[in-house]
Design a protein around this nucleic acid. Sequence first.
DNA 1: GCGGATCAC
DNA 2: TATGGTGATCCGC
Length: 859
Amino acid sequence: MESTAANGGGFLSRMALNDNKAGMEGLDRDRINKIIMEASKGSRFYENEAKKELQVNQRIEKMMLQKAQITEQQLQKAHAQVERMVYEMDMSRDLSRLIVHVDMDAFYAAVEMRDCPELKDKPMAVGSMSMLSTSNYHARKFGVRAAMPGFIAKKLCPNLVIVPTNFDKYRAVSNEIREIFAEYDPHFQPMSLDEAYLDFTDHLEQRISWPESLRTHWRGTDTTETGSIAPNTMLAKVCSDKNKPNGQYRLPSNREAVMDFIQNLPVRKVFGIGKVSENMLGGLGITHCAHLSQQMALLSLLFSETAWHHFLRISLGLGSTHIERDGERKSMSTERTFKEMSVAEEQLSLCRELCDDLAADMKKEELRGKTVTLKLKNVKFEVKTRASTLPCAVATADEIFAVAKDLLKTEIENVSPQRLRLRLMGVRISTFVSAEDKTPQQKSIVGFLQQGSSGPSQDIAPNRGRETVSHHSMEMDPPACSHSLEQLPQEVPRLQGLPWTAGQTELQQADVAGEKQPQSFFQRAYAKKLRLQGKSLSGEDKGHGSVCSGFNQRGMDNLKSGDSKMHDSERGLLGSSRNSSVTNMANVSVAPLEARVSTSGCAAPNCETLTCPVCFGEVRTTNLNVFNRHIDQCLSGVTTKPHQTTDTDSESDGDGGLKGLTAKDEWIEEDKGWQKKSKPDEDLNDFKTCETLHRPSVTRSEDTTDGGTLERCSRDEPLLDHHSFLNVHSSQRASLSRDGNPGTLTSHLESQPSHEASTLICPVCQVPQNTDDLTVFNRHVDLCLNQEVLHKLGEHASSSSLSSASVRPPITAKKSKERDQHKARPNKGKSKRRGPPSSPPAKKVKALGSQNTIDKFLR
DNA sequence: GCGGATCAC
DNA sequence: TATGGTGATCCGC
């Protein structure tokens, strides 16, 4: 077995040529592997690979040991269980679908050859001397393939032409291709630039006459495709590999054909089985799918349930029978490889850059996440990740960096006095709370102020992170919460009286609306703003009203269960133009409008009056359209602020103002200042005013409350109404953004940090602050808010845990505008893979698919 | 929730 | 000279 040859022979199976690819059959593997090993041996990369191979071998040995201890009785029992499963799975087999997998042959290379025909007859690859993305079929004959470093490829094929990647070009071609896909299946599932699944079932009849035109299209891009037809995605994917290049393969939709096809299939060909799994299975003598079924009882005893169920499905030729668009993005990251870097200052500087980049990417999709992960790879290729989860979601470069920096500092300190010798650094953000978490944060902190409130979600969860984590929490609370304030003026008042609060306790309602008293200070601030500025009528708002009403109606009509996690306020607030767009699209042709109109189901069905968030009057209706109209009318009295721009792009450096205050320069200038714990983090200077006000315990309680509330809301299923209400937010906001006459305080706030606005206006007292210095401005707002908070707290005994973290003014407030635009097409960007074709060891498949079917129409 | 590992492209 | 970047998931703690 190759896997046992970890060291001695100087041959690493995991580094050997992977010829599991089209166009690489019948190669002189020994010769090629010899060249690969010679080129690699002695390198740090090689050493690390050797180490990893050893680990895998140990895993295999351990597994073999387990196998040896299995009794006949256990095996028989397992066998019976497997039999039952097989029966059930077989019974559920669905052969009714016709799934097509289309895969462009050597896509990048094909595009490059199209643009440079001389390359057609030469071995060529796309990539760099460090790494190749793909190679053409000429090059593959030499053993040159994707994921191989260019310099090794050159050794295999000295005449190899390496063309640098040009992703814009590939994307453009990919878009052409996807247009064609859409003709066949508007819900097709793109897996990457060059790969997609289509469901031909529904319109098969009319499509039977189409293949001719399909070919024509492909020639247009001068690339060839391989397609396959099969009853499920797993099989389709395998089939498309069968007749590469430029071929098709159709697997008949009957059980016999499927089972026949599966038997001789090498396990490695199946999506989800990589080289490690292949080796593990190989240790058991399992190389082909036929072996899988033979050894299933054993596998069920040696592998996790997830894993062996996956194996079982493969062995039966089962796979996903429906095409699903990408679900929601779960993480976003950026990482970079570089020459050895061991100077801490440089590392921190790079970390900052990565955070900048990541924040910029996040901004495009208007994401906010709670978990920041730092990834490090040292010069020995050892990878390490360090994560920290915050109580509040973060989004800006400063916020992310505040966390990543500490993680990095900790790692640096851990190896001190030696240096971290890095070759890669990355920053990732996850645990997105994009829409649903903002209100909870807000309401919970306000709720916290309501002492005695002891709703189900009021328990204070300990921050389970390491020391650094809690440290982060302290630092991060203010910025995270500042965001929430950004939401407040619109969202908190509007939340009051929301149907879904009706069934909750009074305290819980207070939680939500920040109102135990008749009005929260936010509401008072908002009302004050309205009084001050809302006296003149603005004509455009009538327009808003109709937009709202129209949308709401449609939204309501289409309400179904969607993303159950979706919470009201932010969804509405931030997703406005998205929802509007979706509505428009839905009017055209796209069916699944409901995908956008989420159902979090927090409402209580028995609310008969609704409280207007603007005039605070009771509106006796349960008809949200009526209610919406009322709100619109109220809002139409809101005046607009002059010279506000709606050009979000021009304001894109919204946190640029902050950057001037960041630590970047500080810790570079300061000799090792970053290492001294005693030195305050100047880069967080503008957060500090809040930090003094925010105790970690408060933060935790917020967090817990949020989670609890959210959970509770998600479970209560069917409440549709508040979605319509949500839509009021959306449409209203969209209109406000678009028409350039934002009349709300939020919009007003958004404009504050912009360059155009040299004067910042306090959102609480409404007094213009004659300063550009955001730190100064922050202090002022904090002061104002403190007065409000203290005032409020006068009615409550305990003030020791006072926190106004969440009310820090929105320095980077204007981001939310852009969010409106980008949220309309969530999470398409970088995601390369989603929902493996055979639904491999994936626990859940979130039913968010329809949400994304609209995406391409919005592109 | 964290961290390592695996997998796909 | 030189072995990537992004995203997802699983498993064992």
